[in-house]
Structures are given as C-alpha cells and as structure tokens.
Simulated scan of single mutants.
Amino acid sequence: MAGNGSTAKLHHYVPQGYLRGFANEKGRVKVVPLDPARKAFISSVKNVAAQTHFHTIDDPEEPDGFETALSGIEGEAIGIIGKFRRNEFPPSEEDRWTLSYYMALQSVRGPDTRKTLEHLRAQIVRFEIGAAGRVNVGKWIKENCGFDPSPEQESRVWADATQPDGPPISFSNLAHIRHMLDMAEELTSHFAGRQWSLVRFERRALVTSDAPVSLIRDPQDDGWDGVGFMTAWGITFPLTRELGLLMNDPTRMLEGLEPDDSRVQEIRAAVLRGEVDGMQAGTTAMEKLFNENLAHSAREYIYCHPEDGKYVPDDLPEPELINVRAAGGLFDAEFDGEPWFGK
C-alpha cells in the first residue's frame, strides 16, 4: 500500500458498510445529535461516525495499514449480516466467531474508548504527583520522562497535574489500536458464548448510533449496580433497520450445574454450534428494548433511515465521551503541595 498522497484522511469508527443498513437508496442517513441544542440533519454515510486520521500510524510504508485490516474484517461481517437477511441463520461456528470479533471491535473502537483511557490515565498521574508533594515533582519527571527538569518545568507540571481533570494526556493512534485489539480479543467470547436471537422487524424499525453495542442490565439487579459483558442480562446489536441481534445471558442454561460438570462443556459447545439460537418476529416491545438501550449507550449521535426518525426515543442522554470515570475519594482530593507519605 502506498503512503503519503494516497493516505486516506477520514477514518470511520462505525463502518460505512454497516451504516448503509440504516440508510436510504442514496446512502443517506438521519443524524440525531444527543446535544439538545443541535438539530437533526441528513448526511451521507461517508461523512458520519468518522474522524480525520483516526487510525493513521507513523509508518511511511503503510500509514493506513490498520484501516485496511479493519476493512477486511468489516467486509466479512457485512457478508454474514447479508446471510442473516436471507434467513441463513443460525450462523456456522466460523461465522459466529467472525461476527463476534467484529462486534467486540465495535464495542471498543470509538473515540469514547480513547477519551476514557486518557481520562483515567490523567487521574492516576494527578494522584501520583499530588500525593508525592510539590517537593518531589522533579523526581517524578526524572523517573517518568527521563530528564532533569528546570524549576519552570517543575512548576508547569505541578500546575497541570493538580488541576481537577489532571494533566492533558493524549494517547497515540498506535496505543489506541493496541488497546482496542487487546480488548476485542478478550471480549469476543462474551458474544460468541451467548444464545443468539435474530429479531426481524416488518412494521417497525431499528436505529443505530456511534456506540451500537448495548448492554442490558438484569431487571432484578439493584439500580446502582454496574453492568458489564459478563453480568449483562442481554446484549443488543442492531444489524440493519429491519434486523436486530439479541444475545441472552448464557448462565441461565447452566443453573444448578457445577463448573466441572461435563454437561457444562456440552452446553457451551451446543451454544457455539448455534443449536440454541432462534429467530423471532419483532414486536413493539422488542423495538423499544433495542432502541431505548441503543439511545442510552450512544455517545454523541444516533443514526437512522431518513424515514425512521419516529423510532428515535424522546428521552435522550446528554453527550458523553467518557464512559468510565475514576472513582471518587482519593481521586477527588485537593493537594496543597505537602507530601502525603513523608518525603
């Protein structure tokens, strides 16, 4: 692949091929900002869910190498979704793993993942420097940055580090890509190992967003409990405006069985073969389950077919690109310059 002038500038974190499943025949979608001060508008799928050089790396030969690799993964996933549209379901085990990896990537590839990492790192650095005290700033810089700072540099680092949001920290594209791949590899089994239900809608429609994978809390959990890929009652992923994939909690099939029971592995193998998967007709309740959870998971934008605006929930969250914040307590502390743990 040639670099320099042929490098693609606009990189999508929600694939164009996927977004076309929610677009009209001209490839246009309705964009609904979560910011209530902004109005919805119509745009081409080429121009949404993308940032300039989001995946470009410092490689003169293949600056867009990762973008090219993503295109291959996305193409395979779109092909599998095409099979689902033709009622070729459940998928083969190979297709199941391929689509699961695609969904895992989609869970962690957006700008919210990068912003969250930067936020968490900034809070850690803030605590490290603040708790060590003003007198130890130079030592911290020497150990972490590899040079002896001037008094002016020490003062600047202290001021930046101890502000409420911590110091300004930016992860490189390469660091983001490495983290994304590590996370996707860990999450893939949490998609593949669930019971899949393919939901087909004829009278209603699904919408999608810049974060289309949604985790559904167990209705029996307390409202303040968090929800993750291991604990989610269900995971939803809108495939197209007519098709949705609901992935149910697999532990319900293992209730009453000990981990070393041979039936556990038999059930897991049956799940991966698609033997417990099924198809169902989309209802109003199911449409709301998908679209309301989708809206709650969105970060900045919801996307839908230009004629499907009525299916976008009215109660939208505020835009938020940081999906996990550092816990309070120590991270909320104010620093007066004195070391917390002696000199």
Rank of each mutant, 00 (worst) to 15 (best):
Val213Trp: 14
Ala175Gln: 15
Val207Asp: 04
Ser189Phe: 09
Val213Ile: 15
Ala184His: 09
Val207Ser: 02
Arg194Ala: 08
Ser197Glu: 06
Arg204Leu: 04
Pro168His: 12
Met180Cys: 05
Phe201Gly: 01
Ser214Ala: 15
Asp221Asn: 14
Met183Pro: 07
Ala175Lys: 08
Glu185Leu: 14
Met183Asn: 11
Arg217Asn: 15
Gln195Met: 14
His179Ser: 12
Ser197Thr: 12
Phe191Leu: 08
Glu202Tyr: 00
His179Leu: 06
Ala184Gly: 09
Arg204Val: 01
Asn173Cys: 01
Glu185Trp: 11
Ser189Leu: 05
Glu186Ala: 08
Leu215Ile: 02
Thr188Leu: 07
Met183Ile: 07
Ala205Tyr: 01
Pro212Cys: 12
Ala192Ile: 07
Phe171Val: 06
His176Trp: 04
Leu181Glu: 14
Ile216Thr: 06
His179Gly: 08
Val199Pro: 03
Ala205Met: 00
Pro168Ser: 14
Thr208Asn: 13
Ala192Leu: 00
Phe171Ala: 14
Ser170Trp: 03
Gly193Cys: 02
Ile216Pro: 11
Asp182Leu: 07
His179Tyr: 12
Ile216Met: 09
Leu215Gly: 07
Thr188Met: 13
Ile216Tyr: 14
Ala211Tyr: 06
Glu186Ile: 07
Ile216Arg: 02
Val207Pro: 01
Ala205Phe: 02
Arg178Phe: 06
Asn173Lys: 06
Gln195Lys: 14
Ser209Asp: 10
Asp182Arg: 07
Glu185Ile: 09
Met180Asp: 00
Leu174Cys: 00
Gln195Ile: 15
Leu181Tyr: 10
His176Ile: 05
Asp210Glu: 00
Asp218Asn: 15
His176Thr: 07
Leu174Gln: 12
Ser172Gly: 13
Met180Ala: 02
Asn173Asp: 03
Ala184Ile: 08
Ser172Val: 04
Trp196Ile: 09
Gln220Ala: 13
Ser170Val: 09
His176Val: 06
Leu206Glu: 08
Val213Tyr: 15
Asp182Tyr: 10
Val207Trp: 06
Met183Cys: 08
Leu198Met: 07
Glu185Pro: 03
Gln195Gly: 05
Asn173Ser: 08
Trp196Arg: 12
Glu186Arg: 11
Ser197Tyr: 05
Leu187Glu: 06
Pro212Asp: 09
Ser214Tyr: 12
